[in-house]
Design a protein around this nucleic acid. Structure first.
Length: 272
DNA sequence: CATCATGTTATAAT
DNA sequence: CATTATAACATGAT
């Protein structure tokens, strides 16, 4: 269920244990999340200290001293959580890193998620700018619009090489904020207003979904000890999956269809 | 039993 | 060749 704000929240679960040494590792070697990195290779983390972490788009990077990194992608259903260090392996717990204080758990029932190991000092040197970065400029977006003139707006927003971290719900939210139909071609778009809407939604999501959980997510480690906050009622998010959901602005019933091969909800009155 | 799910990627089609 | 569209992946909820 992860887009950039949910990914950031997941990262902070494990980040609460920066400075802790890994004392044992449990893996489910047959799990598909190991398709890029065989499970036995993770033994190299044993005895190493988790020293830091960061996120980029929907990816997370957990760093171990020295120059060793575990990259995690949650796919569609992946979850990171923490529990007491004697946590017993639950269904779909594919990776558990145990420290003296806690168990760091990666659980993913659909297994679209994945993990990778890197031994470069910085494995993330060639990633595109994130919407929350200063390099995500009007000029950057204008260049992308020119390069992908026939792409529907929704598809442009979902393209991780263009807008890293944006997923299905934020893409719909951005189209709604723009007042534009999600199938409109990129060639029709104005880079300035597009950037404004993207930043409003991504920065807002980080604030509503990730930051408001900060205190709870970094204290204690009982599963579910933090509240899964969501954007406010005047965001499309709160209405888009309800059957007969209505536009939070004009109250007209929302339309839905498959656009850019994903289910898309929009307001037929506000978005033309 | 059929449909759908907050994602990515290999392959096909333009 | 570059861009765009579609199928496939695996499991669970409805």
């Amino acid at each position: 269920m992860p887009e950039l704000a949910e990914v950031e929240l997941a990262r902070r679960q494990w980040a609460a244990f920066h400075g802790e040494k890994i004392i044992s590792i449990d893996t489910q070697p047959k799990a598909r999340i190991y398709r890029d990195c065989p499970a036995p290779a993770l033994r190299i983390l044993d005895g190493k200290k988790l020293v830091g972490s960061k996120a980029h788009g929907k990816r997370m990077l957990f760093s171990f001293a020295p120059a060793l990194h575990l990259e995690v992608h949650l796919g569609m259903s992946g979850k990171l959580s923490v529990d007491a260090s004697d946590h017993s392996v639950a269904k779909h717990d594919h990776l558990i890193l145990r420290t003296k204080k806690a168990a760091l758990i990666f659980n993913d029932y659909r297994m679209f998620g994945r993990i990778m190991l890197h031994d470069l000092s910085d494995p993330w040197t060639h990633l595109p700018p994130q919407p929350q970065d200063s390099k995500f400029s009007v000029a950057y977006l204008r260049k992308k619009l020119e390069r992908h003139p026939k792409k529907p707006l929704k598809g442009l927003l979902l393209d991780q090489a263009i807008c890293p971290g944006i997923g299905n719900w934020m893409a719909d939210e951005i189209c709604w904020k723009l007042g534009l139909h999600p199938a409109i071609h990129s060639a029709e778009l104005d880079a300035t207003s597009l950037r404004k809407a993207i930043r409003f939604v991504t920065l807002g999501a980080l604030k509503h979904v990730a930051d408001r959980n900060e205190t709870a997510s970094t204290t204690g480690f009982a599963p579910g000890s933090y509240v899964a906050n969501v954007p406010p009622k005047n965001w499309l998010f709160q209405h888009r999956w309800k059957k007969g959901g209505n536009c939070p602005a004009c109250k007209v019933e929302l339309s839905r269809d498959t656009i850019a091969s994903r289910t898309t909800a929009w307001c037929p009155k506000c978005q033309k």
